[in-house]
Design a protein around this nucleic acid. Structure first.
Lengths: 159, 159
DNA sequence: TCAAATCTTTACTTTTCAGTCAAGATTACA
DNA sequence: TGTAATCTTGACTGAAAAGTAAAGATTTGA
């Protein structure tokens, strides 16, 4: 259960845009430099995010990327869904071992856990907006835990 | 944010052992057949689980694998941690882009989310034992949601 | 119109993850 | 003791993910 490179970097690029401020735009070279990734890589990520409607891209001199919606309205759950190819739908067709279809046809205790887990993660992420990731680590950390705490207290019960 | 093949199949193999009953053992060919995976693959997974102390392996005729601890005491969070190489510790050293270390040194809003997310998942999984995955899908599904519901209600608030 | 800056798209390379194979080691039992 | 059944281990192969490169398209402004 880990976050993919695409999810991590994609999210970070969006945070850069949100940090730049309402309506402000950043170019590919700027984004690449600020996140310490190659311009090619940033280009691919921004293209995905643009295709998904999170950012507007304008070409030419004075071009760049800007958020298509206010950072306050962009939920992390939406972002992750796009950057991760939303695989849960076809889960039972993807881990089939050597068979054509999953051996647990029709009755499968594992499936509940996999799907349930996915729900939990999506739910947690749907309580966080992009704008809440802007700021110092301390501030963000406090915000994040408070949000999760209010909506269930799961994150704060252990360790 | 997805589950890896190793996590999925490893968990499924453990559930098979748990289903076999207290103290009962299964051989590699049996496990492979029941989960629809190759014997080679099952061998590798069971080796991992054995090394991690979840199962006892005995060689020779009449050999096989059996749970090293009661299924009631094995938490999913432990299992996933082993099958997933427990990557969260070194997170900041793994997604460094083209740099030697993460550009967000010292102050990083993203880190809170990544670590926080990991906490949420681990926490959810630490509320489920292996024994609770044994049974029909309907039963397991009910159990799973009830457990998550009690410990925070996260899983049941949406859709 | 032309050149520079910028995003877009496809193809390619590299790296990581999954899965397989084969030889080896151990045990039970006749 | 010997054979069959079983787990163990490391090397190998194939597939998927990550990242790079290069040529193309669009816009601005002189």
């Amino acid at each position: 259960m880990k976050i993919s490179a695409q999810e991590e970097y994609g999210l970070r690029c969006l945070v850069q845009l949100a940090s730049a401020g309402e309506g402000e735009s950043l170019t590919l070279p700027q984004i690449a430099e600020r996140e310490g990734i190659s311009q090619s890589n940033a280009g691919k990520l921004m293209w995905l995010l643009s295709k998904a409607g999170f950012v507007n891209a304008t070409r030419g001199t004075k071009g760049g990327y800007s958020l298509a919606r206010p950072a306050e309205e962009i939920l992390l759950s939406e972002v992750v869904k796009v950057l991760d190819d939303d695989e849960i739908e076809g889960h039972c067709n993807s881990y089939t071992g050597v068979m054509d279809s999953c051996v647990h046809t029709g009755d499968c205790g594992i499936r509940s856990v996999i799907v349930g887990l996915h729900e939990i993660v999506q739910n947690a992420l749907s309580n966080v907006t992009l704008s809440q990731l802007v700021g110092t680590e301390k501030k963000v950390d406090e915000r994040f835990h408070r949000i999760q705490g209010l909506s269930g207290g799961v994150a704060s019960t252990e360790r």
